[in-house]
Amino acid sequence: MRTILTVILGISVLLGCFANTWAENASQVKTLERVTQRLVAPPFLPAHEQVAQGPPKVVQVRMVIEEKRMTISPDGATIWAMTFNGSVPGPIVVVHQDDYVELTLVNPTTNTLRHNIDFHAATGALGGGELTHVAPGQEVVLRFKAIKAGVFVYHCAPGGPMIPWHVVSGMNGAIMVLPRDGLRDAEGKPVRYDKAYYIGEQDFYIPKDANGKYKAYPTPIAGLEDMLEVMRTLTPTHVVFNGAVGALTGEHALTAKVGERVLFIHAQANRDSRPHLIGGHADLMWSGGSFKDRPATNLETWFVAGGSAVAALYQFRQPGLYVYLNHNLIEAMLLGAAAHIKVEGVWNNDLMEQIHKPGSIK
């Protein structure tokens, strides 16, 4: 009996300590500066400082879930996309290590499904997924402390087969948690970027009818069974950057100038990818997205594991058109996983020069 009482007393003391800690943390958060971050559509990042200014803050963000029909390729494929803030991928959030992210997640009455959000940057409760389930007409507020520096995926995870269906229907995004003192190169020296772009790679699985034409459905749930059948083949019909074939090419191409350092954040919530910059490299690449690890240098192609994001920094040295792609060339050229970067500046013949133009063989 004495042993049981001792155990009960010990548990009571432990719970009391936890309660005091929770109260202290809640009180501390109330004293922090609160800022609102205005999220923007990819490939762009919200306004942010590369080096933290002052102590940790509570960064307030708002995401509105939108179920919408989207055209994803010139061959007529459409999908009932499930989106955060109306874009595929969802917007990228940028904070600093030890900041608090306070998200208001809204599921309007115009939607038809329950949704939630799992932040790979968060600790506990399935990345917040357990605490953010919202039905149409509901909203929820989640706050978590960003204790790990790096780039991370977030996605909807409502449970069971609905998880992959929501993810491959576009419901994923990324968060970048910068070190408070900014990024550092392989020698530990501070490094800054002049521009940053967020590329979300998306695999789609669009069913076809008996005549080989892509199917369209009146509601998201109407296409569920057909889509699951295609998904079980593990063979996507489309692999694209930022929601559609050509979303980052032609008139939508990314831009840079010779001499600029550009940070590319590349996320894939479901499948592995192998980014490559034709005509360039990754001067620095943070494997697995971890900014606390020493970056790899001078890579021709780098790896993104499914369910993760990485960051790569490159300083452009020549003008012209660059192609950034998944170096599974079948997925890049036949399924759509490619982007363009138009770079302005003066050509350097020392780096490359055409000695003779093409002509007849002598």
Results as ranks from 00 to 15, higher is better:
residue 252 H to E: 01
residue 182 G to H: 08
residue 278 I to L: 13
residue 60 Q to F: 03
residue 333 M to E: 13
residue 226 D to G: 01
residue 225 E to D: 09
residue 316 F to I: 08
residue 300 E to G: 15
residue 352 M to C: 10
residue 347 W to P: 00
residue 178 L to Q: 02
residue 104 T to K: 15
residue 321 L to M: 11
residue 304 V to G: 00
residue 297 T to D: 08
residue 191 V to M: 07
residue 279 G to T: 07
residue 246 G to E: 12
residue 32 L to Q: 13
residue 73 S to M: 06
residue 60 Q to E: 15
residue 38 R to G: 00
residue 243 G to W: 11
residue 150 G to S: 07
residue 130 E to N: 13
residue 197 Y to L: 07
residue 178 L to E: 06
residue 136 P to E: 08
residue 359 G to Q: 14
residue 10 G to E: 12
residue 55 P to A: 14
residue 226 D to T: 11
residue 332 A to V: 10
residue 201 E to A: 03
residue 353 E to P: 00
residue 110 T to F: 05
residue 150 G to C: 04
residue 44 F to L: 13
residue 311 A to K: 02
residue 99 D to K: 06
residue 254 L to D: 12
residue 264 F to P: 05
residue 172 N to F: 15
residue 154 Y to R: 12
residue 257 K to V: 00
residue 255 T to R: 14
residue 283 D to C: 05
residue 194 D to P: 06
residue 281 H to A: 12
residue 163 I to G: 07
residue 277 L to A: 04
residue 335 L to F: 13
residue 270 N to K: 13
residue 176 M to D: 03
residue 315 Q to G: 00
residue 301 T to E: 14
residue 255 T to Y: 07
residue 332 A to R: 03
residue 192 R to D: 08
residue 174 A to R: 08
residue 162 M to P: 00
residue 303 F to H: 09
residue 33 E to C: 05
residue 345 G to D: 06
residue 56 P to I: 08
residue 9 L to C: 09
residue 44 F to P: 01
residue 117 I to Q: 03
residue 254 L to F: 04
residue 295 P to M: 02
residue 20 N to G: 13
residue 335 L to P: 01
residue 182 G to N: 07
residue 359 G to I: 05
residue 43 P to W: 02
residue 262 V to M: 04
residue 284 L to I: 01
residue 269 A to D: 10
residue 121 A to T: 08
residue 137 G to I: 01
residue 299 L to K: 15
residue 339 A to K: 09
residue 316 F to P: 08
residue 99 D to F: 06
residue 211 N to M: 03
residue 86 G to D: 03
residue 271 R to E: 10
residue 355 I to L: 15
residue 300 E to N: 10
residue 340 H to G: 02
residue 240 V to S: 07
residue 250 G to F: 05
residue 354 Q to D: 06
residue 303 F to Y: 15
residue 187 E to H: 13
residue 361 I to G: 02
residue 298 N to I: 06
